[in-house]
Amino acid sequence: MNGLFSDHECSPVHRVHFDPTNSDQLSSAIVCAISTVADRSPRDIGPLWEAIDPEALERLLDHAAARGAAVSVGLEFSVDEFDIVVTDCGEILVYGDSSDHGSDDDLEFTFDG
């Protein structure tokens, strides 16, 4: 991940790849990743929009894709008990219990470029 997020002492519990040039399905991919780790139906996952604006996240990744290799972008946020990291290189990383890393209101944005 280009060293964008180094505050996690453990490895992600789940890693999913998506096409960063086509972010239209990003919200669904995030919810599916969380539901896989939580072993719950996607309908039982807290609404993504309560943690982050999905359209803003898509626009951010679209902008990073348009900039190419000149910029590295990542965003970390919490949904239910999980920390989610989304990167412009097409990764969704799910980390365990977010209570170990701060409150559910924490949002971290990293820009490298």
Rank of each mutant, 00 (worst) to 15 (best):
P47D: 06
D104N: 14
A69L: 09
D53K: 10
V13N: 02
G74L: 04
S6G: 09
A51I: 02
G68V: 07
G74K: 10
C32R: 09
V73P: 00
I92K: 05
L57I: 08
D83R: 15
S78W: 03
S11R: 11
S28Q: 11
S28E: 12
D104S: 14
D83F: 01
R67H: 12
E91A: 08
E55A: 11
S103C: 12
E50Y: 08
F18K: 00
G46V: 03
V79C: 08
S41D: 15
T87I: 06
D80C: 06
A70N: 04
E76V: 10
D44A: 11
L61G: 00
L60E: 07
P47L: 13
G3Q: 13
A38M: 01
V79G: 01
N22T: 05
G113P: 03
G68K: 08
S103K: 12
L57C: 07
L107P: 04
A65V: 00
V85D: 02
M1D: 13
F77R: 02
F18Y: 15
V31D: 02
R43K: 13
E58D: 13
S11D: 12
F109K: 07
E58G: 07
E91D: 10
Y95A: 05
L93R: 09
I34G: 01
I92T: 05
P42T: 11
C89R: 15
A69Y: 08
L4W: 07
I30Y: 03
D7G: 10
I92M: 04
T110R: 14
G113Y: 10
F111S: 09
E58K: 15
A69P: 03
H14K: 03
P42Y: 14
L4P: 01
A33V: 05
Y95L: 03
G46N: 06
E81P: 00
S98D: 06
D88N: 14
A29D: 13
N2P: 01
S103L: 13
V94R: 02
I84C: 08
C10D: 14
D104P: 07
A66L: 11
L48Q: 05
F77N: 03
S11H: 07
E50W: 07
L48T: 05
E58H: 10
M1R: 09
D39G: 05
A29G: 05
F5W: 04
D112Q: 15
M1Y: 03
T87K: 01
